[in-house]
Simulated scan of single mutants.
Amino acid sequence: MTHSFDKNYWDKTWSGERAPAMSAGDPNPHLINEVGGLEPGTAFDAGCGAGAEAIWLAKQGWAVTGADVADAALGYAKDRAAAAGVNDQLRWVQADLSTWEPDMQYDLVTTHYAHPAMPQLDFYDRIADWVAPGGTLLIVGHLHHEHSTPAHSTISEGAHRREHGHTHPPVEASATAAAMTKRLDPTVWTVITAEESHRSVIGPGGRPDIIDDVVLRAARRS
């Protein structure tokens, strides 16, 4: 592997100059589209960052555990949760999700662009095991492009290669819908959504950008 998405990397990222802007983001639109109609239960947000998705879930009535490797990210998350008035529905865990294990399974396990210190697809396999029977897995990741270049240990999240207005992530931090779906045992999972999408956003300095997403939603059989 050529990237170093370890605790040191994320601590530096969340303590750097981009952190205030990163912590002010809205919840991912794919989460709202895919989960908005589900009955609330227990939820786990893997790599929760500043907590936008975890807080949105809590506002919908979910009992949420948000986990991230970076203490500074969780500091932002706790402040945002307090401001939103949903502290009672949230639990924050500082953990390296490449090795940490939960003590329960959840009705919903979700992750949004989390990059752990392990291969991306292996990470998705790992968190899928944390879904309870009858529960939902929702993964929103960076779409893999055949022309993506390998990442190096010095790459930063803001230095993803751009081409024609698109942000291309490091190859190790991306996936395709086909590759993700292939990892799910059809005797255990029903795939509901497996899509690759493109959405326009306004990036730093007001610059328009296009985010290429891969979205997988699957229900675990009871």
Score class of each variant (00 low, 15 high):
Gly16Leu: 00
Gln120His: 15
Gly141Lys: 00
Cys48Lys: 02
Ala117Cys: 12
Ala54Arg: 08
Thr181Ala: 15
Gly16Tyr: 01
Trp62Asp: 02
Asp209Glu: 15
Ala19Trp: 08
Ile32Asp: 01
Val109Trp: 00
Gln105Cys: 12
Asp79Trp: 09
Ser153Ile: 14
Ala58Arg: 03
Trp56Leu: 01
Leu121Arg: 12
Ala179Ser: 15
Asp212Pro: 08
Ser200Asn: 14
Glu195Trp: 02
Asp71Ile: 10
Glu195Met: 13
Tyr113Val: 07
Trp10Met: 00
Asn28Met: 03
Ala81Met: 07
Ala177Trp: 03
Pro133Thr: 04
Asp129Pro: 00
Ala95Ile: 06
Arg126Ser: 02
Val93Tyr: 01
Val69Met: 07
Gly206Asp: 07
Ala81Thr: 00
Ser23Asp: 03
Asp185Pro: 02
Asn8Glu: 11
His198Gln: 14
Ala159Asn: 14
Gly158Asn: 10
Arg217Gln: 13
Arg80Asp: 01
Tyr113Lys: 06
Val215Asp: 00
Asp185Ile: 07
Leu90Ile: 15
Arg221Cys: 10
Gly135Trp: 04
Gly75Thr: 05
Glu196Phe: 03
Thr65His: 08
His144Arg: 15
Ser4Asn: 13
His112Leu: 13
Ala82Gln: 12
Tyr106Gly: 09
Gln89Phe: 09
Arg199Val: 10
Ala52Arg: 06
Asp71Asn: 12
Ala159Trp: 11
Pro186Asp: 08
Met1Glu: 12
Trp62Lys: 04
Glu146Pro: 07
Ile32Asn: 02
Ala72Pro: 06
Gln89Ser: 15
Ser153Cys: 09
Gln105Asp: 14
Trp189Pro: 03
Leu121Trp: 01
Leu138Val: 04
Gly203Val: 02
Ala173His: 01
Gly47Ala: 04
Arg161Val: 14
Thr187Leu: 14
Phe5Pro: 05
Arg162Tyr: 11
Val69Arg: 01
Ile32Ala: 05
His164Tyr: 12
Arg161Asn: 12
Val188Phe: 01
Leu137Lys: 06
Phe123Gln: 00
Gly61Gln: 08
Val131Cys: 02
Ala46Thr: 04
His145Gln: 12
Ser197Lys: 12
Ala52Gly: 05
Gly203Gln: 01
Asp103Phe: 07
Thr187Phe: 10
His112Thr: 10
His142Thr: 08
Ala46Cys: 14
Ser153Gln: 14
Arg207Asp: 15
Lys12Gln: 10
Tyr113Asn: 00
Arg221Ala: 11
Glu195His: 10
Ala43Trp: 03
His145Val: 13
Ala77Pro: 03
Gly135Gln: 02
Ala46Arg: 00
Ala63Ile: 11
His166Cys: 09
Trp10Glu: 06
His147Arg: 11
Gly41Asn: 03
Thr176Gln: 09
Ala73Tyr: 01
His115Arg: 12
Ala128Cys: 07
Ser15Trp: 03
Trp92Glu: 02
Pro102Val: 07
Ile155Glu: 13
Pro119Val: 08
Gly75Tyr: 05
Tyr106Glu: 04
Ala54His: 08
Met104Arg: 15
Asp125Trp: 05
Arg217Asp: 04
Thr2Lys: 12
Val86His: 06
Arg217Val: 06
Ile192Cys: 10
